[in-house]
Design a binder for these strands. Structure first.
Lengths: 183, 183
DNA sequence: ACTTGCATGTAAGTGGTTACATGATTGG
DNA sequence: CCAATCATGTAACCACTTACATGCAAGT
């Protein structure tokens, strides 16, 4: 999905600043299937305001830069629901890890093991993080469904890594005998 | 991963034309975690040739346009293995479906059901396709590992959709009573 | 007659990211 | 004292996609 729709989806549930939208997209319940940087969020919000889909008010703060709080308008709500009616784009999955894994046989065992473990740890961390979000933040039943789906899939992936990474490591190049082995 | 590395990875296993590289990336065993279009592959190959990482020979054909067959060079092989040693980028997962799912409560039941079923069907189709590739095309043990990982994860996702989509559908707006219900 | 497959390539456009500029406050 | 957090925004860059241009052969 594009950043535009992401912004509308977050503002649908309450007002927020560009800064907060980015935080929610990076750390929130959606973080495992969306992402956006400041460089895309701020221009997107400005454009949405131009089009009347969101409105903003500036809240000065002492000591901190002023917050520009955006709210979704009725037109924005309608546009978002309309967008949800349109055919969905396909899910995207890109995995540098799997490309790496295909060539395990070319690589030293140590490296394959390290990358596998990194990958497993990332999956475990994602699961942990998403569960924490589910505990700490208020979730609608739909949010809960989405979280459960993610937990289920990522827990399996992590489990699979744990139980099968040794097979991939076994395909890797045996560790080189150290030059100074005799010493 | 970038298209550049993708090209090297495919050429590592044998020569190919730009056309074939694209087919392999879209239909091959990697299709579930990589992708590339002509518009990125052809320039990438040209650049790789400039840098001496691949070489090409033109094979004229009768009736069909000439094929430009690329082969990886020793320098290319070295560069690829070197690239595999570098820290891996993070896996990317972007899901318009899950963004949609979070707002099931705003949408008509029919639509939610349709999108869920589409999503389930896509997962089933991916699993089917990847299994077929595993049967039909020669696979190294590492390839097989990567395929098994994908099958496992996608089969779970499909199963989850099958057994839980009704919960999401239940959150959706009840179908509107038809205007002419009395007739 | 039309579509699909084979085959190469370019140009314009998209949808971002990265890095920068700015600046006060708080906490280690 | 330095890093991080809060907060906004821009400009340059990048990697890639989409659409186009070309063309022949075989299948439907």
């Amino acid at each position: 999905m594009n950043v535009r729709t992401l912004c509308l989806s977050i503002l649908y549930e309450g007002e927020a600043t560009g800064y907060e939208i980015r935080r929610k997209s990076v750390e929130g319940e959606c973080s495992y299937f969306v992402e956006a940087s400041y460089g895309s969020i701020y221009p997107a919000l400005a454009k949405l305001e131009d089009e009347g889909l969101v409105s903003s008010r500036v809240e000065p703060q002492e000591g901190k830069p002023a917050r520009k709080v955006y709210s979704i308008t009725d037109a924005g709500r309608a546009a978002f629901v309309q967008a949800l009616h349109e055919p969905l784009g396909e899910d995207v999955f890109r995995s540098p890890f799997l490309l790496f894994a295909r060539f395990a046989h070319l690589l030293p065992r140590e490296l394959v093991e390290e990358r596998c473990e990194e990958h497993r740890a990332r999956l475990a961390e994602s699961v942990h993080h998403i569960k924490q979000v589910a505990r700490d933040e208020p979730c609608t039943p739909a949010d809960k469904w989405v979280i459960d789906y993610g937990v289920e899939v990522m827990e399996l992936a992590e489990r699979y890594m744990r139980t099968h990474m040794h097979e991939l490591v076994a395909l890797a190049r045996p560790e080189q005998i150290k030059k100074n082995a005799a010493e």
